[in-house]
């Protein structure tokens, strides 16, 4: 599976567009992490707990998107984008989407 945020792959010809595929994941961290992040907010610096939270979520969103692409029979996902939204305090949604295509 080729994954790219380019719209055209150099040297490859797209034979079929299979439309939009998307993956999303909403996760929260336990109170301990929220507490540490709250404290970190006072002193500044990297919020490790939340970096980890967002990474895990992004990974899962990405995998879910690829699963959809596989299901429609694509061999590449192009022009992918990530977006993040905070649904609730301490919980984040990671969303990935792109175009599923078949390349030669």
């Amino acid at each position: 599976m080729i994954v790219s945020n380019l719209e055209i792959l150099p040297g490859k010809k797209i034979t079929k567009h299979l439309g939009l595929v998307q993956g999303s994941s909403v996760r929260a961290k336990h109170v301990g992490r929220d507490l540490m992040a709250g404290l970190k907010n006072i002193f500044g610096g990297e919020l490790k707990g939340y970096t980890e939270l967002l990474q895990e979520s992004r990974q899962e969103a990405h995998e879910r998107m690829l699963e959809q692409a596989k299901a429609v029979g694509a061999n590449a996902v192009l022009n992918i984008r990530f977006s993040t939204s905070s649904i609730a305090a301490g919980a984040a949604e990671l969303f990935a989407y792109g175009t599923a295509v078949i390349v030669e």
């Binding site: 034979t15 939009l20 879910r64 959809q68």
Partner: peptide, 14 residues
Amino acid sequence: MEYSNPEIPEGINT
């Protein structure tokens, strides 16, 4: 080039 919108199975994002 062909454009189509195949059905995506349920339950991947939930």
